[in-house]
Amino acid sequence: MGEQLTFRAEVWQWDARTEEGWYFVTLPTGPSEEIADRPRPPRGFGSVKVRVRVGGSSWATSIFPDSKAGAYVLPLKKAVRKAEGIELGDEVEVELETLE
């Protein structure tokens, strides 16, 4: 359907003040640029709908542009982190497909 990408990235936390902060991985810069260059209908915060697989977990979500990183970031919800035993600082393999 859209771009397909497999990559490895380190899990980082956006708000380190609490354990319940948001956890993300950053997509590689090159593929992020390709995703950003593809025409899409405008969506909130510049998000792009994606389907993701990490380990045995798969789900639909959105990726968001991060101007500081110059790349998109993928949120990792708590249920996935728990199911896959993912901790802050772990490197995870991500399979991602854009849906639009």
Rank of each mutant, 00 (worst) to 15 (best):
M1G: 08
M1Y: 01
Q4K: 15
Q4R: 14
L5V: 05
T6V: 15
F7T: 10
F7Y: 01
A9M: 10
A9P: 09
E10R: 15
E10H: 00
E10T: 15
E10N: 02
V11M: 14
V11K: 11
W12E: 10
W12H: 06
D15T: 06
D15C: 03
A16N: 13
A16Y: 03
A16I: 11
R17D: 15
R17Q: 13
T18R: 14
T18L: 13
E19G: 08
E20C: 00
E20W: 05
E20L: 11
G21F: 01
G21Y: 01
W22F: 02
W22R: 03
Y23C: 07
Y23E: 13
Y23A: 01
F24M: 09
F24P: 12
V25W: 00
T26M: 07
T26G: 05
P28N: 03
P28D: 05
T29Y: 06
T29L: 15
T29A: 15
P31E: 07
P31L: 01
P31N: 05
P31C: 06
S32H: 04
S32E: 10
E33K: 12
E33N: 07
E33P: 02
E34V: 11
E34A: 10
I35P: 06
A36G: 05
A36M: 14
A36P: 05
D37C: 03
D37R: 13
R38N: 10
R38T: 12
R38S: 08
P39Q: 09
P39H: 06
R40Y: 03
P41A: 11
P42W: 07
R43Y: 02
G44S: 09
G44T: 02
F45P: 08
F45C: 08
G46K: 01
S47C: 12
S47A: 10
S47T: 06
S47N: 10
K49N: 11
V50Q: 03
V50S: 01
V50K: 03
V52C: 00
R53I: 06
R53S: 09
R53T: 13
V54E: 07
V54W: 01
G56K: 15
S57P: 11
S58V: 00
S58L: 05
W59P: 13
A60T: 13
A60W: 02
T61L: 11
T61H: 00
F64K: 07
F64V: 09
P65D: 10
D66S: 15
D66F: 04
S67F: 03
K68F: 04
K68R: 15
K68A: 13
K68L: 14
A69G: 00
A69C: 04
A71C: 12
A71Q: 12
Y72L: 14
V73W: 04
L74D: 14
L76Q: 06
L76H: 00
L76Y: 02
K77A: 04
K77M: 01
K78R: 14
V80C: 09
R81K: 12
K82A: 10
A83P: 08
A83H: 01
G85D: 13
I86M: 13
I86R: 11
I86A: 07
L88I: 14
D90L: 02
D90N: 12
D90C: 03
E91F: 00
V92G: 04
E93A: 08
E93N: 00
E93H: 01
V94D: 05
V94R: 05
E95L: 07
E95V: 02
L96S: 07
T98H: 00
T98W: 03
L99N: 00
E100S: 08
E100M: 01
